[in-house]
Amino acid sequence: MTAAVSCGCASTGGSGEGTAPGAPTGVSAQAGSATSVHVMWNAVAAGPEVSAYEVYRGARKVGEAPGSAHMLDVVRLTPSTAYVFTVRARDAGGRLGPRSREARATTPAAATADGSAPTVPGAVTGRAVGSRAVQLSWSPSTDDTRVVSYDVYQGGTKIHSVGGGQTATVVTGLRPHTRYAFTVRARDAADNVSPAGPPVRLTTASGADEGRDTAPADFRAASRLADGAYYLDLSWTPPRVDGVVTEYQVELDGRAATSLVWGGAPLRGTASYSFYAGREAGAGHRVRLRARLPDGTWGAFSAQRTVTTGESG
C-alpha cells in the first residue's frame, strides 16, 4: 500500500527573507480527557525561523506555543464533542504561514462523579537512542472508568501525551550529552491525574548520532519489471517517535535520490514506495532511507539494502 508521493531529488528549502513560514505537517490531535485535547505537529524546518505556532479550533485561535515546541494542550472543551484543529507558524516579523491540514479529535464522555485518579504507571523504563532521543516504556495504569491518556514529563514540564492504549514512545528534540529525568502520569476522562512514579534518568549520547530507534525499521527493497523498465519497490515501518513522520529521504548509491512527502494522513503501519531504476538488467544498487523527525531534523538511516535489477530481493 503506497501512501507517499515523490517531491523531487532533494529536500526543499528557501530563503526566509520576505516570505512567511510554511505550513506545519504531521498535525495530530489526541483527546487527553473529557475536556482537553493534545495537539501535536512537526517543526517547520525550511524558510524563515519560526518564533511561534498558533493553534486554531475551527476559525478561532485557542492558543500558541513557542517556536521550539511542537505540542499544545487545548483545554476547557466540552465532553463527547468532535473538534477540528489546525496549526499556523509565525515568524519573528509577525508573518503567518498557511494553515496545516486539519486534525480531528473527539473528547470522551465525562465520568459521573469520578473522583478517583488512575494508579501510577508501573515499571517505567527508558534508554537513550542516540544524541537527541530517548525511548520510554511503562506498564498500564488501572482506573475505575478507563485511562484516556498518558502524560510524559521532563522534570516538572509536560512534554508529550499519548493515548490510553499506548505504553511506549520515543521522545525526540533533545540535546546531545545531556542528562534528563522523565516521569509518566496517567489521566482519566474526568481529568484525574495519577501521581508520578520514580523518575527515569537518562543521558543522551555525544555527537550528532540520531540513534537507531529514529531509523525506519524492517526496510526491504526488491526489483520489479514493468513495461520494459525496472523499478525498485521499497517498504518499511515508520520510526515510533513523539509525533507523526510525514517526510522521508531515499538515498540511492550514496546520493540523495528523492524525497517523499505524504499527501494525507501518514500511515503508522507498513509504508511503501516504488521508483524507476532504468531499463538495464543486472544493474546493482544500494538503497536506504531516513525520516524527517517531528522536531524538523533527520533521523538515522535505515539498514542499507543491495538490489540488482532483474533479480528478486
Rank of each mutant, 00 (worst) to 15 (best):
A45Y: 06
G63W: 05
T309Y: 07
T172N: 14
A208W: 14
P24C: 03
R292I: 03
D213W: 15
S141D: 00
H177D: 08
P216R: 07
A34E: 03
G63F: 04
A217R: 07
C7F: 15
P216V: 08
T169G: 02
V37Y: 03
L136T: 04
D188S: 10
V170Q: 14
R179S: 14
D73E: 06
G282W: 01
T178Q: 10
G63Q: 08
A103I: 06
D295C: 03
A31D: 04
G278S: 00
R88E: 06
D242R: 02
A208E: 14
T107L: 08
N192W: 05
P199E: 03
A168N: 09
M1N: 07
R290A: 13
R88D: 08
A43T: 10
A117P: 06
V55E: 00
F85M: 03
D191E: 12
V261K: 09
S206R: 11
L96C: 07
T112R: 15
L289K: 00
D143A: 06
D218F: 03
A222R: 13
Y153P: 10
G13M: 06
A92W: 11
S28K: 02
V124W: 08
A277S: 09
T309A: 10
A208N: 14
T203N: 07
R279V: 04
R60E: 13
A45W: 02
T306A: 13
E311D: 09
A3G: 15
A181P: 03
G93D: 09
A69H: 13
A89W: 03
T112Q: 15
G126D: 09
S223E: 08
V148T: 05
R99K: 11
T172R: 07
G163F: 02
A23D: 07
L232H: 03
L232Y: 14
D233F: 07
A110I: 10
S68D: 08
R57S: 03
G94M: 10
A189M: 03
A168K: 12
S116N: 12
V162C: 09
D295S: 02
A271P: 00
L289F: 00
R268D: 01
D143V: 05
W236D: 03
L260W: 09
T125K: 11
P238R: 07
R127F: 12
S149P: 01
E102T: 11
Y231N: 06
L293P: 00
V44N: 02
T78N: 11
A31F: 04
T157K: 11
G67V: 07
P195I: 11
V124I: 08
D227Y: 15
S272D: 03
A69C: 09
